[in-house]
Design a protein around this nucleic acid. Structure first.
Lengths: 236, 236
DNA sequence: CACAAGAATAATTTATAAATTTTTGCCGGA
DNA sequence: TCCGGCAAAAATTTATAAATTATTCTTGTG
């Protein structure tokens, strides 16, 4: 199985896109640790490619907010901080509230069905591959993403959706970085169901409240995780 | 006067940044027309530089929404359409309303003073360099940008501000592309003053209404400009 | 007139070279 | 002896040039 042969239908065919995908995975999973320097030589060896495709990928990732570029002194994995986590969460709550309200204002039977299906599939998939100890389930992550994407997907603005996705990616990295001791105490499935129900019943205020509480709760768990933030008792 | 010697204080020093700035200007001013193909050879000759800095600049501009990249077939100036203009305007109204409300909720004397100064400077600068016929005044554009930036600048979210700036850039291109027959019939100075007054007096609802009306009016003028949109009587 | 093979064009990638930053080592002074 | 500044060396990023690969255009055939 060659890496170049794994192109999905209509998928990207340039090497730059392949490296982009792989780098993105490693960035989101935390394999490439925050604030780490991304040296060209290291990247070329690790991902078996040249500088041009790498440069292309790194520039795109910079736009995604996962990589930072300092002129003349290279690329770095974007650092994390309690302050940024709080700000990203705040912004996501603001913007997705807006997008959800607009989605609901423009509701259609088709959209409600999409949401119903997304919620259903998510509820049927185990969050962890291991019952006793947490082990990331990629399928759950995919469906979770789809569910939240569907919530805001009917708002009628591509650029707003893209911005929400960007925030989601950045926050997803925090989530992956944090050891999930919240599992399995928290019942996120119930939270998703409650949100979907509020949306279907047309209660925008409640839907927004539930959604923002959902995000805030996740952030609070990560904020208390001293394993990823040096415990300085400060916002940094 | 060498090009490399024109570095402003703390300014970027790589060639890629220089090309980025120049390309951005030409994109926003319409010198590079929408949907035009950006061939490497042409760009290298025009901007007197190599492929690597060009590629870097084009990738950044893609993230800004000014350039489009199609895998294996090059870069293109992003096309325009009535539909996109309407959607961008709608999104900007939504998002900046949010940002303005948050800015006002977190108001400080310093911020109000910044706004006062920004409005004052803008009012003192002529919009056109020519009294009879419209001629773009770069200083006015700069101050105009600063004024709107100040309005949302106190919201407390860097990512939200960055998103607003991105939308502003994309819409600025539409504005530049359109022949401004609205000049001098419209009194934008009065509109800015009214917005600033509403903000200072703490009336959030009115400030938001005035701001969105301001953006909507601009979009309406451009939407009626048949010189830039093939008159298909459709949203395209 | 549709279609396919080949030539031309253009984008992508690799390889090489130049410029910049960071590190290292040396010397003088406290 | 220890610290700070200066200079040279090393490492790294950035840029140019050459090679490769993909797409598009042209031409000839069924």
């Amino acid at each position: 199985m060659d890496a170049a042969a794994v192109e999905g239908a209509g998928g990207p065919s340039t090497q730059a896109s392949h490296v982009y995908d792989r780098l993105r995975d490693d960035l989101l999973s935390g394999k490439l640790a925050p604030s780490r320097k991304l040296q060209m030589r290291f990247l070329m060896e690790t991902y078996q490619t040249g500088q041009t495709p790498l440069r292309e990928a790194l520039n795109r990732l910079t736009a995604d907010g996962l990589v930072e570029v300092r002129e003349q002194r290279g690329f770095y994995v974007r650092d994390i901080s309690r302050g940024e986590l709080a700000e990203l969460t705040k912004t996501r709550c603001w913007v997705e509230s807006l997008a959800l309200r607009e989605s609901m204002a423009a509701t259609t039977p088709h959209w409600e069905e999409q949401l119903l299906v997304a919620q259903h599939r998510l509820s049927r998939t185990p969050r962890s591959l291991n019952a006793t100890e947490f082990e990331d389930n990629p399928e759950w992550e995919r469906l979770h993403r789809t569910f939240h994407h569907t919530l805001i997907g009917n708002c009628g603005s591509q650029s707003l959706i893209a911005f929400c996705n960007q925030l989601a990616d950045q926050l997803y990295r925090y989530r992956r970085l944090s050891i999930r001791k919240a599992f399995p105490s928290r019942h996120v499935g119930d939270e998703h169901l409650a949100i979907a129900n509020a949306v279907m019943s047309g209660n925008a205020d409640e839907a927004v409240n539930l959604l923002t509480a959902h995000y805030q709760r996740t952030a609070d768990v990560i904020l208390q995780d001293e394993a990823i933030f040096p415990d300085l008792r400060r916002t940094q």
